[in-house]
Write a protein that binds this DNA or RNA. Structure first.
Length: 467
RNA sequence: GGCGACGUGGCCGAGUGGUUAGGCAAGGGUCUGCAAAACCCUCUACCCGGGUUCGAGUCCCGGCGUCGCCUCCA
């Protein structure tokens, strides 16, 4: 298996620190506002990495943090007169719910920054003692020039950064490149005690502290959005490696941005599509499929046409699965599994993997049309669709009990369980069709369609699904 | 200006030098009471110019173009 490592900017074979085990740290969102479509992409991209590694036999520990204290959160809370912690908690729940709808598995560990102030203070103290950081006026800054590896991830040279017009000395910085590890408390802002006075942590230090706590000084994969490469991940490396003397992570994975009209979606500019809205407009798994159609490192343009395309593609997958029936204990089609594995082993090429899945569907449909055994392909489909998080979640019809009961009464079906009513209605329709009573048959189908139940006639009888 | 990514058929997109990826859309056909689904056929591309090679979408060089980072950001 090869992965593209941002550190070094090249593909390289993936070899975990310990055989069979993989530690992953993903930079989660700052929960200042609701999630947008870009957040969903990052979550899905690394969820698939995690699922694939697990499927491949690795024992994975997946850590994704929540940044719940930060300038923007404080500002957003102030704007609506709320407590920053309350606002952060509320938004964090919205993020979690959206991720759940996208089929993203909950992290093994989901540390919040505010629960790890002590670890951060300790790490900052270590850096000061080692001469890599200095307190100044209640703040603590990291001395960028004290660590000679600075810039190795993003390919930046200190002199280039200096030349940049936007870097201005902070109030207490000795060097314009230095960044805050600890910020002195301002009136009315949340703060914690520290050896340097009350304050709050800088953004970058939380990841260094929490990754170290849960995954150790060196771990396998550190992931996040490409927009975090600089300065966030660069700073993390500087902090962690200056403190421990060992590499922070062996592989750095970064997902590409989601664009809107050719430009990056970003909450700071309001140039965004709300993720919840997208999930309400399209089937959540169609949104997931939309993400997976493009390699995770490439930019991805959000368009309604692309989402509709994905919805149609998802329908094709699910229609196949509905008609196929139970594959029993059939082993998964080996060639399909092998082709899929080959695609995913190439830097988690889920788009290539999807091609394999669709090909299995086409061949499977062909076999079913010919009344031949497709169980191996169906088994492969089940395994791969489940792995990718694209299996149809077939909801029950209990919520339609009342409407179905009324409809049943209209056609002379008296039963309590909605499933029984539906079966009765389908039986009535089958009888009508046998008599070539098309009016009745179509009336039943239309009435069910009004309830959101789509009935399709196959050679082996009718099938239904929720629309 | 510095660093980086990318340019594939109507659209989206995979592609590790050498047999049609795949999906969506469109047109035609088969099946079907109708509908839906499915299958078959058609649309065979690789930004431009050089080069390496028996052979390049796939490697090298040079252009052009798009995007990202360089400030908070998934």
């Amino acid at each position: 298996m090869d992965v593209f490592n941002t550190l070094g900017r090249r593909r390289q074979p993936f070899q975990p620190l310990q055989p069979g085990r993989v530690g992953i740290y993903v930079c989660g969102p700052t929960v200042q506002a609701r999630p947008h479509v870009g957040h969903g992409r990052a979550a899905v991209a690394f969820d698939v990495v995690r699922r694939y590694l697990t499927w491949s036999g690795y024992e994975v520990v997946y850590v994704q943090n929540v940044t719940d204290i930060e300038d923007k959160i404080i500002a957003a809370a102030a704007a609506e007169g709320a407590d920053p912690q309350v606002l952060a908690k509320r938004n964090a729940e919205v993020f979690a719910a959206a991720y759940l709808r996208l089929g993203v598995r909950a992290p093994d560990i989901e540390p919040a920054a505010t629960d790890h102030i002590a670890e951060m203070v300790q790490l900052i103290a270590t850096l000061i003692a080692a001469g890599h950081a200095y307190p100044a006026g209640g703040d603590v800054y990291y001395a960028v020039r004290s660590y000679d590896g600075y810039g190795k991830l993003s390919g930046r040279r200190l002199d280039d950064l200096i030349a940049g017009p936007r870097i201005e000395p902070g109030e207490h910085k000795r060097d314009p490149l230095d960044f805050a590890l600890w910020k002195a408390a301002k009136a009315g802002e949340p703060s914690w005690d520290s050896p340097w006075g009350p304050g709050r942590p800088g953004w970058h230090i939380e990841c260094s502290a929490m990754a170290r706590l849960y995954l150790g000084h060196t771990f396998d994969i550190h992931a996040g959005g490409a927009d975090l490469i600089f300065p966030h991940h660069e700073n993390e490396i500087a902090q962690s490696e200056a403190a421990t003397g060992t590499p922070l992570a062996r592989y750095w994975l970064h997902n590409g941005m989601v664009n809107l009209g050719g430009e990056k979606m970003a909450k700071s500019t309001g140039h965004v599509v709300d993720l919840i809205e997208a999930l309400d407009t399209y089937p959540p798994q169609a949104v997931r499929l939309f993400y997976l159609r493009t390699h995770y490192r490439k930019p991805l343009d959000f368009t309604t046409a692309a989402l509709e395309d994905s919805t149609a593609s998802l329908d094709r997958l699910w229609a196949f699965r509905r008609r196929a029936g139970d594959p029993g204990s059939s082993p998964a089609h080996p060639a399909t599994i092998a082709a899929f594995r080959s695609a995913m082993d190439d830097d988690f090429d889920a788009a290539g993997g999807l091609g394999v899945l669709f090909e299995a569907v086409r061949i499977g449909n062909r076999l079913l049309d010919a009344d031949e055994d497709a169980s191996a392909l169906v088994a492969a489909y089940d395994e791969l669709a489940d792995l990718l998080g694209l299996s149809e979640v077939r909801g029950g019809i209990d919520d339609l009990a009342e409407e179905l009961g009324a409809l049943g009464a209209r056609f002379g079906v008296s039963a309590d369980a909605p499933e029984t009513v539906l079966a009765g209605l389908l039986a009535i329709r089958a009888g009508a069709r046998d008599r070539q009573d098309w009016a009745t048959a179509d009336a039943v189908r239309a009435a069910l369609a009004d309830l959101g139940l789509v009935v399709e006639d196959g050679t082996d009888g009718p099938r239904w699904h929720r629309s």
